[in-house]
Amino acid sequence: MLRFIFGRLLVLIPTFIGVSIIAFAFIRLLPGDPVMLMSGERVMAPERHAQIMAELGLDRPMYIQYFDYLVGLLQGDFGKSIISKRSVLTDFLTLFPATVELSFCAIVLAVALGIPAGMLAAVKRGTWLDQTIMGTALVGYSMPIFWWGLLLIIFFSGYLGWTPVSGRISLMYFFKPVTGFMLIDSLISGQAGAFKSAVTYLILPTIVLATIPLAVIARQTRSAMLEVLGEDYVRTARSKGLSPFRVVGLHALRNAMIPVITTIGLQIGVLLAGAILTESIFSWPGIGKWMVDSVFKRDYAVVQGGLLLIAAVIMIVNLVVDVLYGLVNPRIRR
């Protein structure tokens, strides 16, 4: 097992270097330099422009810039924002918990609803219930979530006034972040109502972000389940007179879990992609919104560092999923 993990880690190294080259190269290729953006409609003298480019180290040959960057990376220096001048890593660490919190809630929602729905559909295969569930799942799977988010805001926040529009918690509450997770911090703070407030702010973004994974998980569960239900040992169990739900619960579910776990693992990338849109719509202060804003602000350093950090997170998550998968199913370890 250790060897398996170690092997996986080794493979990550060239990938990570490749990722760093790509992140670096992209950003150098962006048209329009950030110094020009600083001045906006106002005009900067060419000499001054050159001087600032030099101060930012943007005038040196690419490979030297890359080398410096790599050396910095090894020392844990992901660069500084060209605009705010804050450290990219610090900003990432401040904003990342917000994304994790949202993604975690979304995946929990997706699993909590998706697996039972998929199982129900499989057991009741061919009935109107199956068709309704699968139809809904397909609609969810086909949903343009940016539009979905807008509709939910119009209806629940605008028309009904049930949920807050954007943010993470009512601004009435203020406490120093301890974990960065608003749900936990609001409990720690001990302020009355803070936790409830944090929950109400989470509802809509969670629904929006969970939509696609929920649909995928429901569909996967159903087909994995159907496959397992068709297998001999389940048929045997059923012929022995076990009730269908008992069969499902005991035997089939465990065997159907393997493809489902993989799907959940694969959804992390999808989730982060979805987070970009969801966070933009709900002004959720996470890394998705941070990246989009930085792309538009041409903040080279942030886009570069952010891409790299996000890629690292995805690679680590995939590694963990791989390892878990290996634990559940020793055959693939080889």
Binding site: I153, S157, G158, V165, S166, I281, S283
Partner: peptide, 19 residues
């Protein structure tokens, strides 16, 4: 308190909601 809200439509919603 400055509540940073980049989308104008969302800002308007927040204002109407008393946020």
């Amino acid at each position: 308190v400055f509540a940073i809200t980049t989308d104008a439509a969302v800002r308007a919603q927040k204002l109407k909601a008393g946020e």
